[in-house]
Nucleic acid binder design. Structure first.
Lengths: 146, 146
DNA sequence: TGGTTATAGTTTCAATTGCAACTATTAGCA
DNA sequence: TGCTAATAGTTGCAATTGAAACTATAACCA
């Protein structure tokens, strides 16, 4: 076994993914943080509330859809409610659940951040030709259910 | 422009990369954290010191090689020194610089963590056939200099 | 030289996060 | 029913992180 030999971090998949992912996420996040005062968690919560607007999601559902834990979502939603970007009601049939939705003010901000995020994604994908983009999606599909 | 339409997070590249990368990194990190009490930063510093053993790196060089900031490295190295996993001397010609190297005890732990990390990477790559693995590397090469 | 600027690394303090404990409510079932 | 277990969400506290300020040393240059 030569398994104990030093790793070459720059060829080590988990490290490369981590650096790439952080670079991209922080690049977008810095922009919407300075312009709109949103954290990553807050923006993700807004994004799923926008997408599933009709379904009136609960905090737990937001947590599932954003792959974040419920404490993070609780705090993020708390701030969004305090800023009147999200409206929180109690579920009629299950008084434990919350019923969340973007306010008009929340939609207004969402509609500015969404293109910004899309634009950044486009910038990244520009570095790949269309064949590579297809492979990347296929690879992410295969790796994602880890 | 329809750019303001809600994002589908599950198809949004930065989000997918972030979830995948966190899943992988935390999977490995939990293992070496419970077994050896190392944080991700600490392990990365050790990995770099192992790889460039001969060069006697400074903290700044470790920071560059691990893509972490100098404050994080300063703290990580501080803990590693406290645990006698890393030896820290002052550079002879430039007394600002530190000269870092793994101790035998540090090597002993490194030699256990390295195979663990490699094994985890193998597990991940097992989900891809060799053609996909080649494409993944090519894609990461093209995206990495962001 | 000497005076300014730059660099290496640490420290400080506030903000963020992560985990466990907690409250309130509902579900399951004998 | 009434008791126990499960679920939704919040809170508290300790640990981690991030940004700026700070110390010490070296480099630059008039």
């Amino acid at each position: 076994m030569t398994d104990h030999l030093p790793l070459k971090l720059e060829h080590f998949l988990p490290y490369r993914l981590s650096v790439l992912s952080n670079t991209i996420s922080q690049g977008i996040a810095r922009e919407y943080h300075t312009r709109f005062g949103l954290s990553i968690t807050e923006w993700r919560a807004m994004a799923v509330l926008a997408r599933f607007d009709k379904s009136k999601l609960s905090a737990r559902q937001v947590a599932e859809r954003t792959a974040m834990d419920k404490v993070a979502i609780s705090r993020a939603v708390g701030k969004l409610v305090a800023r009147s970007l999200v409206n929180r009601k109690m579920h009629q049939d299950d008084r434990r659940r919350s019923v969340l939705a973007l306010t008009p003010k929340g939609w207004f901000i969402h509609n500015q951040v969404a293109p910004l995020a899309r634009g950044y994604e486009r910038e990244v994908l520009k570095k790949l030709n269309s064949e590579e983009q297809v492979w990347l999606n296929r690879i992410l599909d295969k790796l994602s259910p880890l």
